[in-house]
Amino acid sequence: MLAKVLAGFLAVLFISGVSVAGIATLSLASAAQPTVHLAGDVPAADIPQIGAIDGGVNLLLVGSDSRKGQDPAFGAEDETGDLNDVTMLLHISQDHSNVTVVSFPRDMFVSIPSCPDPAGGSFDSMSRQKINTTLTYGGLACTVLTVEQLTGLEIPFAAEVQFSGVIAMSNAVGGVPVCVAEKIEDEYTGTFLDPGMHTLSGVDALQFLRTRHGVGDGSDLTRISNQQVFLSSLVRTIKSADTLANPVKLYSLAKAALGNMKLSDTLANLDRMVSIAIALKDIDLDKIVFVQYPTGSTEGGVQPMVDAADALDSALLADQPISLSGDTGGSVEEGDAAATDPAVPADPAATPDPAATSDPGATSAPTTVLPSDVKGQTAGQATCSNGRTLDDQ
């Protein structure tokens, strides 16, 4: 979802003609939602010119479970407030050679720093609460402060998306093909998918991303792995020649993103968003890594695994590319699924040949091999959702 949103801002670059580009820019600006002020915001000296952003990027994307103004089919409004059930950090390296996307489990206990109250004043810090309460507690700015404290990173950019935004953006990209290895059955989200390939958009895409009971062991951790199946396929779709060459699809994606997301002040500038997207577009699929923040079980939820989390945080702080030694955390390789189920076709083109995508003359920082406790996959890995039937629930 995050890569899809950012890549969408490339749309303006592909719209031919000065007059058309001008109209597109005005239309996109008029679609934007009110912005959010982050605690560490400082006014930018200059708006960047069209071109890749200078240096690295840390951007936090939050998916809210709020039902305010949403379709009643998604359920009644939750009296506990807006929970950030999806919290993802995008880290683009300084040299734009690699990307790490970190998913923070919603039930992970963390300390929450003092957060500014949007109505004025501030909220007290808390020593131990689940990370998905930060959006309710102090809004998007509080979630950013919490992840900054947890990881040690500075995060100058942030965005919040609700259910309708996921639907609009999946429609704008024309659907995302996902592979299902074992049948998915989830009465809570109405997700029922047989083994094989499915192109998901709209409500179907949203419910696939939301399903927890229908995948893996039914936990939020295996839901993250399921989301990474979708995200890795999404990145491959966005970076395909057809998608990047289609100005109508890209413009629709940009408009859907701006019209359905709440952005930080620092991100709510079309030139800046385009410059971040440009930094992403030439990165090899095998250099885009999706990881789960490493956690272990505790009463009522999960908590960070200190050594593994420190290894991940240190690599990000040092701006080093990472390599995974652990498994995906729940999904299966597409080739493995095809070997056991003929309904899942093996796609040899899904995983690129590293020799064909890498630049042999390029130099980069030393790669950090993360402990096996860190689960995830690259965008170049074609994986399948490991479904769960009603009989197993």
Rank of each mutant, 00 (worst) to 15 (best):
A254D: 12
S219P: 06
Q292N: 14
E334H: 14
L200F: 12
A29N: 09
S219C: 07
T357N: 05
S225Q: 02
S331P: 13
I276R: 06
V102I: 12
T80A: 08
N260H: 04
V166Q: 06
V99D: 14
T143R: 01
A172D: 01
G40V: 10
E299Y: 12
S325P: 00
L258K: 13
I322C: 07
S233R: 11
A315W: 04
I47A: 14
F230C: 11
S93M: 10
F104S: 04
A241W: 14
T389D: 10
M108A: 03
P348D: 08
D82H: 14
D65L: 04
R272H: 12
A346L: 14
G8A: 09
I92S: 05
A21P: 15
D194G: 05
V306K: 13
I23H: 14
P371K: 03
D392S: 15
A52C: 10
A21L: 10
G63C: 05
C142S: 04
D373E: 10
A365C: 06
L317R: 08
D353L: 00
V178H: 02
T191D: 02
L135W: 00
A31L: 05
S358I: 03
P321I: 01
D54H: 13
Q33E: 10
G387H: 07
A11W: 13
V203R: 13
A339V: 13
P294L: 03
M126V: 03
G40Y: 15
